[in-house]
Amino acid sequence: MMNSIEKLISVSKGVSLLYVEDDQILQQETAQLLKNFFEKIDLAQNGEEGLELFELGKYEIIITDINMPKVNGVEMVKAIRRKDRHQMIIVISAHDEPHYLIDLINAGVQHFLSKPIDLTGLISVLYEFCVEHQQRAATLSPDE
């Protein structure tokens, strides 16, 4: 466990993150936890806010809940996908929305995490994503 945390910290520097969650307490607590790994974390209350932030800045990773007012997670993911096919997205699913999952898989969501979030699982997914980001950055930079 300790190992995986350290591994994540070793790759997470410089990675920016958007976290979309409508439950404020959960949002704050999760954000506090994530701050242990990431420097830049932006928070959104719902899909609408999430999309606005997505338009303004570039995030390496987007973590989102599904059930949210105004624009829900599924709609937001679909909107993002239309603009960026490669955006890395983690969807937190509460298991009671199975009908959404197929939509999300079709929208090309790479990873699902079940609620309540298992810390080990979260760290390992974030690690994978960070590594993938680094690889992408490495393959892109020689061309520049």
Binding site: I25, E29, K115, P116, I117, L122
Partner: peptide, 10 residues
């Protein structure tokens, strides 16, 4: 529950 879990994880 998710909140509790998150705080505990934190």
């Amino acid at each position: 529950l998710a909140t509790i879990n998150m705080i505990a994880s934190s």
